[in-house]
Nucleic acid binder design. Sequence first.
DNA 1: ACAATAACCGAAAAAAGATTCGGTATAATA
DNA 2: TATTATACCGAATCTTTTTTCGGTTATTGT
Lengths: 119, 119
Amino acid sequence: MYERKIEENLDCGIYLASRVFGGKWKCCILDAINRGIARPVDICSYIPDASKRVIEMQLAELLFYGIIEKSSEDTYPKKSEYSLSIVGKSILPLLAQMDEWGLAHYEFVKERQKELQIS
Amino acid sequence: MYERKIEENLDCGIYLASRVFGGKWKCCILDAINRGIARPVDICSYIPDASKRVIEMQLAELLFYGIIEKSSEDTYPKKSEYSLSIVGKSILPLLAQMDEWGLAHYEFVKERQKELQIS
DNA sequence: ACAATAACCGAAAAAAGATTCGGTATAATA
DNA sequence: TATTATACCGAATCTTTTTTCGGTTATTGT
């Protein structure tokens, strides 16, 4: 986990929420786990754009915050499986709403993005 | 606006959403504007933790994406006023839900945060 | 014995994002 | 005339986050 130099203000609910599941790939990871993709290898192939390392790190963070749970710690060849905790499941409606918003405004945003390319 | 070196994949709704309103202070700015705090100076005093510059930059981005609208462009002394566009307003329920989640799990998260301090 | 696999870790480097600082413009006011 | 106020911009710097790369460990299959 990173060592912060500037203190955070977690008193704002939105800020706190984005601390917990606002990483670049955390939502995707939660989505994967929710779909039953439980093992790190499989999550990596499910999200090929994310580096293996960042998935490991964000899994560790989500575990730390109690958003996900881990089973079968020390068997070899390691076959860790992750699942959503109760708190983790409480995030799902939010993710769904975010995804819905994003898809609904896909064209709208892409349009602007394109303008950026031209200019 | 920053020039990205690595291309983004906006096909995921969640990813796209967080691109549009996922900056460190964007949600706070939207909240301020929603409360009728329309002028940059006032937004700055409303969010004293954020630097003036970042508020300017994020206002510009929100404007670029059509999330907010601007009035009275070129009068002096400048008195710009920002307001939420229709698309901007469509984000509000999401922000509310995020804030609600954050506040509901405040203790839960703070507990872990504290552990981090000790160790 | 040896390669393959899976999970995970540390450290350096790169990229993204935020902050600081100093600038511009212009009208109103002292 | 000089100062103040407001919005905004550019560039350097700093912080945070992500990526890259090369480990370790221990079991399973060859």
